[in-house]
């Protein structure tokens, strides 16, 4: 089953007026981990924001089908409730909102939107404790305000925890490896790998190959100038690591 189908997508950043995604096509099947690699400025973050529905990222042409349904008219919260999850490159710090309260609000908002019963507090705490334990996240940390004062590793672990709790079907990971040391990278990758399943797809956006040593992709796509210019298997990532983007970009030109 195709989980995500992006057809001829064009995205403009309203504030700058420039088109960043420029006729992008991509198909990701359920169970697949698709890596998107690209040099700086190729449109990686724009793609992730457009998928999540951020204001200011205007789709001027094309379609994004998630489980066969066009999601472009949906609000960010509707996309989230239907199963789209964006792991942020820079998770924002929100003072005054305890992480644990935020998690509960997020989980129950999504359950409510899907017409499911909201979690009771004991159910919720049990679920969180289980998921947090395997990511090395203490309940103490979850009492702190969301991401405030978290180290780079803690922030990314908190993102993965949210992913584990919200159980999305499409996980878009925007440069999850940025700002991580090797130990933190390993914990994050283990968390992601534990969530791999036949009915879930991942779009892993990254600059470097090193994340893909830990999260081994089924497909690798090179994003350049707002388009996918080359697709291949995991060996493509190794090629990029060794030779850089120059020859592939030259071939595409």
């Amino acid at each position: 089953m195709t989980m995500l189908e992006i057809k001829n997508l064009h995205v403009r950043i309203e504030e700058e007026g420039t088109e960043i995604i420029n006729g992008l096509n991509l198909s990701v099947k359920a169970g697949e981990v698709a890596a998107i690699m690209g040099p700086n400025g190729s449109g990686k973050s724009t793609l992730s924001y457009a998928l999540a529905g951020r204001d200011g990222y205007e789709v001027t042409e094309g379609e994004v089908l998630f489980k066969g349904e066009n999601i472009l008219e949906m609000e960010p919260e509707e996309r989230a409730a239907s199963g789209v999850f964006l792991a942020f490159q820079y998770p924002v710090e929100i003072p005054g909102v305890a992480t644990i309260n935020f998690l509960k609000a997020a989980m129950n908002s999504q359950r409510k939107a899907r017409g499911e019963a909201e979690f009771t507090t004991p159910e919720f705490i049990r679920t969180v404790k289980e998921a947090a334990g395997s990511l090395n996240i203490s309940m103490e940390m979850l009492k702190r305000p969301l991401n405030v004062g978290f180290s780079g590793g803690e922030k990314k672990r908190a993102e993965i925890l949210q992913m584990a709790l919200l159980q999305p079907q499409l996980c878009v990971m925007d440069e999850t490896d940025s700002g991580l040391d090797i130990d933190a990278l390993k914990i994050v990758a283990d968390g992601v790998n534990a969530l791999r399943s036949p009915d879930r797809a991942f779009v892993v956006i990254t600059h470097y190959q090193r994340l893909l040593q830990h999260i081994v992709p089924d497909s690798v796509h090179v994003l350049y100038d707002g388009k996918i210019i080359r697709s291949g298997d995991k060996d493509l990532a190794l090629h990029l690591e060794e030779f850089g983007y120059a020859d592939i970009i030259a071939d595409a030109a």
Binding site: A52, G53, R54, D55, E75, P76, E77, R79, A80, A81, F85, L86, F88, P91, V92, I94, F102, A105, A106, M107, S109, Q110, A113, Q162, L166
Partner: peptide, 10 residues
């Protein structure tokens, strides 16, 4: 946006 991307209504 962060909160909405996690499912909270605006």
């Amino acid at each position: 946006f962060y909160l909405r991307a996690r499912g909270l209504s605006e």
